[in-house]
Structure formats: structure tokens, C-alpha cells
Design a protein around this nucleic acid. Sequence first.
DNA 1: TGGAATAATGCACGAAAGGCATCGATGTAC
DNA 2: GTACATCGATGCCTTTCGTGCATTATTCCA
Lengths: 291, 291
Amino acid sequence: MYTLDQVKCFVAVASHLHFGRAAEELSMTQPPLSRQIQKLERFVGVTLLERDNRRVSLTPAGEAFLVNARMLLAVSDRAPRDAQRIAAGQWGRLSVGFTAASGFGILGSLVSVIEDRLPGIDLDLHEMVTGSQLENLAEGHIDLGIGRLEVPPQEIESELLLAERLMLAAPERHPLALLDRPLHRSDVTGQPLILHSATKATYFYNLIVRHFPIDHHMIKHSLSQVLTMVNLVADGHGIAFVPESTSLLKIPGVRYLAFADLTDDVVELKALWNSQSRNPALQRVLSVIRD
Amino acid sequence: MYTLDQVKCFVAVASHLHFGRAAEELSMTQPPLSRQIQKLERFVGVTLLERDNRRVSLTPAGEAFLVNARMLLAVSDRAPRDAQRIAAGQWGRLSVGFTAASGFGILGSLVSVIEDRLPGIDLDLHEMVTGSQLENLAEGHIDLGIGRLEVPPQEIESELLLAERLMLAAPERHPLALLDRPLHRSDVTGQPLILHSATKATYFYNLIVRHFPIDHHMIKHSLSQVLTMVNLVADGHGIAFVPESTSLLKIPGVRYLAFADLTDDVVELKALWNSQSRNPALQRVLSVIRD
DNA sequence: TGGAATAATGCACGAAAGGCATCGATGTAC
DNA sequence: GTACATCGATGCCTTTCGTGCATTATTCCA
């Protein structure tokens, strides 16, 4: 096999048609340059340069080789730079798993910021529930998750993206929507309730149970998708707890009500990633998220 | 700079994700393979392969490098083969200069034969008079000429392509066209004559003067292009000498007549080339022509 | 806990690359 | 026509690099 150095030598000589000046460009002396060309020609088995002791010229075979040689140099030059850029996280691909709920609020601005600040990074967006995000993170199928959970499992790191209030979605003619005083947590007692599933939407279920006196006899539906819940509210099937950002969803017949005695931002949205991840783009994206 | 051997090592390891088996494929032992990879990574400045003492995997940078690496190997493999094929004359480009007259007869079949027998060779066809062919051959602008001349100059070699009879082109109502006996050379004496130019079509001029008793008072036109001459014959301006192949040109009002006392193939068409030519395609074409 | 698997490292040898000096051939000038 | 300049090739020496063998270090698995 020949070497890229020999190719570089050949291109230099073919460009100058002069061994001495080519050697100068290559920062070497002329004798080893002659030998490198000889070696290359011996490997190729063909005379590439016609040396006339007075003038140097390319043979037809040499001209054809020159085309490929320039391509080799171009690719060999690009290859390390591509690798370096990817290692530095300037280039790359990031698979992101996000919950449908996060899509209402933060996802759009997150994508905008990344496209703006890290133009070399392509995002693959996949909607999935938090549980799937954890599985896919563990198996390396996605690099970043955007979801809700209290305590991430082993090897999954997390960072708070957003915290918001918990609100009540109620039909506009519902008694709680027509109160002439501030709404309190105890007001929900005894009302027909559309609640998150304890198994499929554990985070919300636990959060709500922790903060409200839930009468389990009043639970009419157990769901996992916020949009479905709000639609059921619109149809008058009951009231539901939703994060504040859901109120961006203007559904006719639905009013969003704040609790006077629950003003803390208790609903959290977290960025999730595998601490074993070797994707440099992830670190870049995380540092952008932190700003 | 790194070497193509290192690239080959990297691709082998990246393909097998196993140093031992990659080394086996490369017909080398494992330790130097490890070192080649280390060297490549040191040059690139980036970890390309994650070695876990138990499993080998590609980093994102390594995956990007692999794409370029495979391209490098493909080009580096093709480059010598292209050069060899061109040197062997299997591939290449041949510039051919030909006279308009040769275009009537042999050129078409010549092109067909070359396209059939040497499919890798592209022909550039340029119509030019023999004198221009000689100039362009000397300067290397064309590789092969097809023309008529008696003695080629220094450094130009030639080979007879075709020899044919010299015939007379006469208007169909011309007395010589209406003879009830065989035509003889002496019959042309005294007839208005359309003759080749002594300077622009020296070959024909010398040939005709050598074989016929030309009365210079009867020369009505001196021309260099056969087609023009035959057109003038059709218009009744006189008679003209033409090579037999011209009779393929069916011009209304023109008859082609053979001389009973000149049956030799005296008109020659030659292949011409520069003996200094380094174009391997030329040798291939010449050997095909000789068949 | 011991053995198998696997990549890294130490060491020695031979090949290759580079620099310096020189040769050989060819064109140029007086 | 002869002396000189130019320029690629060659001889020789030193340093660097690639390779194989033997061994080490680590981890997985029984």
C-alpha cells in the first residue's frame, strides 16, 4: 500500500512540474521527494511523471491519478476535522424523547434555542411517555428525555427544566368555575374527578394525592394523556388537575382555575439523560439548556 | 499525517469491533494493530473507538470518521487501477484529426471498429486538412491524423490505411462521359479542368501531375475540398480527378469514370502520428487499425 | 476464587524515510 | 565549442517507524 504522504508528494510535483520547488513546498529536500515518487510509481506499476532531466510532465495515467489523488487529499483532510467537530459537540445528532404534555410549553422554545445556538446539531424528536424515555435512555436509543418523574433511577441523571403551578380544569358551567371567592384545595372534595392513572402517569397521580384530599369514590376516569382529560372536562364529565402550561390549550367550555392555597410550583419537568452517554452533542445541549 | 494503512486498520477494527479478529483479517498480530489505532487517534486528537477491555465500540466521532475512512479506501483502491488501465490503453481519450475526404469512406468504419474493440477509449474527432494535422500532431494537440501525404516529416510516423484508384468526375453530358470506348489518361488533354490547389492540396496536385499530361492552360479552378470540386463538375464547369471513394457521393449530373490505363491504387490514405506520443491509447488504436 | 478472553505494553529487530553530498545529463552563454 | 548552471537520480548514514514475540492488566464468567 502507498501512503498519503506519497500522494501529497505526487500532487505537489504534479502541481509545480518541478521537483525542487515541490520539495520546498513540502518542507523537505529534493532527494527523498524523488524517492517517494519512485516508490509510488513502483506500487502503481505505471509511470505517472515523465522526467526528462530538464522538464517534468504528467503522463495520461498520471493525469488520471492526479484526479483521484486530489480527492484523497481532500477526504483525508476532512476526516479528522469532522471527527473533531463531532467530538467537540459542534456537530452531531441528538435523539430527544418528550412527553406530549411537554410539547405544549417548553419543547418549542427548546428546539428554537438549540437550532439557534447549536446549528450543527440535528434533533430527532420522539414523543413518548416518561417510562419509555427511561427505557430508551438506558438502552441508548435516545440521548435526552424531557419528562416528569420524582426520583430518577440509577445511571439516569436529571435536571429541572421548568416548575409550574398545578391548576384545575373545570367545565365553564361547573359550580367551582362559578364561585365568587378564591378556590381552595378542599373545594374539590366530593366532585366527580378525572384523575391521572396511578400506573401510567404515576408522577401526576402521586403529586395530586399528596396535595389533595382525594375521595377515591369520585374518580370517574383514570387517564394518562392531558389532552384527553381536558376534552372530557369540556364534555362535562368532571374536573381535572393539570399543570399551568396546559392552560395554553384553549378548549371551548373549559376554564382553568388556580388554587389560592397552592401557589408553589409543584409540577416539575425534568431533562433526563444517561450518565454513561458518550454523545458529545448531549453535553453541548445540556450546557445550552442551563443558560 | 496519518497513513492509509492506519485507515485500513481502523476500518477493520470498526467492522469487527474486535482487535484480534481485525488483526487476523489484516494478516498481522494484535499488538501492532492496537498501536496503529492509537497513533491514528493521537493524530486525529479524538477517541474513535471506545475500548472497554471487554468490548469495542465506536464513538460518534468514530462513526463519522468511518464514513470518510471507507471513502478513502475506495478512492485509494481505484486510483492505481485507473492509472493502470489508462497506461494499458484500455481507457483513454484520443484526439483524431481527419480530412473531409476521408470522412466519406474509411472514417465511419474506423470509428465503429474502435468503439467496438476499445470501448474504454473516447474519440475526439476534428476535421482538418493534412497540413493542420501535421502541425497539431507536432504540438501534441491531436494524437492521430488521417490524411494524405507522400513523405511524412521528421518525428511523424505513418501507416497506409487505404489505397484506391484515381477516377474522373465528369458532367453526365460531357463528351468523355459519353465515350463508347474505355477511357484513357490521354483523353483528358485539352479538357477544362478543375484541379487541386498546388499549395493547399499538394498531395493530390503532385499525384495528378505525375500521372497525367496536364495542360496548365486548361485549369479553370484550383481547389482543396473534394465536395466543392464535384459540385462544380455537376454544374458543368469541367472535369476533376477524385479518389474512388468519392464516387460514394451520388451527386445528380455527375458520372465517375475509371481509366483503363490507370488501374493501380495510387491514391493513398495514411494514419499519421507523432513518434514521441506518450498516449497509450494511441498504440492500442494503431494495433486495432492494423487488423 | 480461578481461569479465559482481550486489549495494552516492553523489547528487539529490520525496514523505511529523511538529510547531505555527489553524480549524470542537458540546456545555455560567452 | 567549452565552461557553467540547472535539475533529477543515487550513495550513504542516521533516526524513526512498523512489526512480531512475550508478557501484563483488566474484566467477565463459571
